[in-house]
């Protein structure tokens, strides 16, 4: 990727953006900014479409006041920084496919949206091969009809999650719970974040591009328990899940067995409201003993 200023002559229509080199170097007219329906939030979002390479880029705007850019010898008042990241166009197509779930329909008819007419351009970005990863296809070369296949879709998402999770792990992105400084160096070599943590983290990333229904399906299939990170977990929970323990290894001072025993005993306390003597009496075989009250007469107001 290269940093480049999208220099149009008109100062009002000028932004500073980080773009992939391929796009920055091509003729500006080949690239378009189009508005598409966001698959997760169902609102219009702007995407950068590269017509030459048929690739789609999500545009993120980072804006902080007060800020401006110097562009050559002029000052650009708008200090926003646009960051473009490639995005799989299939994600954008999914809501449309989901809408016409049960019918085989040609793609150009699926991609119709009164609100966001540019969505038909997505058709150029995907090949029949790509579509086959999430759809069942019918028809011949000149006319393909597609229908969303839930099984294929989930498999596709699953593969995606696994690949991204692997990449994140190789990149050393911290995916455990809580947060950690990028420059933080862990004292113990082995990372405490498990593969599960990466899968969960990745699922969180990818679910930003999936509708809630699909998310639920994937969650169920991959057995991902969504964590409510906003809620501060109670202290007890902290002890229970290992991943929430300290990342540093203090086990030689406090062996896990004793820790577990402590947790266990605190649980026992809750379950055990009975005193030891009460438990002893509970154990007595009372099968042949009648209740004591059956021997005495009841009177409510005695002495």
């Amino acid at each position: 990727m290269a940093s480049a200023a999208n220099q149009n002559k008109c100062p009002q229509n000028q932004w500073v953006a980080i773009l992939p080199a391929a796009i920055a170097n091509t003729n500006g007219s080949k690239n378009r900014i189009i508005t598409l329906r966001h698959p997760r939030f169902d609102i219009g979002c702007q995407f950068l479409l590269c017509q030459e390479s048929h690739s789609l880029f999500e545009i993120m705007e980072f804006k902080e006041e007060p800020r401006s850019w110097f562009v050559n010898n002029t000052v650009q008042q708008n200090g926003a920084l646009l960051i473009s990241t490639p995005v799989d166009p299939i994600f954008m197509i999914l809501p449309y496919l989901a809408k016409v779930k049960d019918k085989f329909i040609p793609m150009d008819q699926i991609l119709m949206d009164d609100k966001f007419p540019s969505c038909s351009r997505l058709y150029d970005c995907v090949s029949a091969n790509d579509l086959a990863k999430v759809c069942e296809c019918k028809g011949s070369e000149d006319l393909f009809a597609y229908r969303l296949s839930t099984d294929k879709l989930i498999g596709w998402i699953q593969r995606k999650i696994e690949r991204v999770a692997d990449d994140l792990r190789h990149l050393g992105v911290y995916a455990g719970t809580g947060s950690q400084s990028e420059t933080f160096t862990r004292s113990s070599k082995d990372s405490s974040t498990s593969k599960d943590d990466y899968i969960k983290y990745t699922f969180g990333l990818i679910s930003d591009y999936l509708s809630k229904d699909i998310c639920a399906l994937v969650e169920k299939k991959m057995n991902i328990t969504s964590q409510k990170i906003e809620m501060p977990p109670s202290k007890k929970l902290k002890q229970e899940t290992k991943s929430q323990g300290p990342t540093d290894d203090y086990t030689k001072f406090n062996p896990p067995s004793t820790l577990a025993a402590q947790v266990q005993s605190s649980h026992d306390d809750k379950a055990r409201k009975l005193t030891s003597s009460e438990r002893k009496l509970k154990k007595v075989d009372k099968t042949n003993i009648k209740s004591i009250s059956s021997y005495f007469f009841r009177d409510k107001k005695a002495s």
Binding site: E278, V284, S291, S303
Partner: peptide
């Protein structure tokens, strides 16, 4: 050890208590 909770009845003649154990086998 036998009785978990009970009423202590205080009257002019003294304090008395009557209670069954939790399994109602003894008094």
């Amino acid at each position: 050890d036998l009785v978990k909770e009970a009423n202590w009845d205080c009257t002019g003649t003294g304090i008395s208590l009557q209670a069954m154990d939790t399994s109602h086998v003894s008094l």
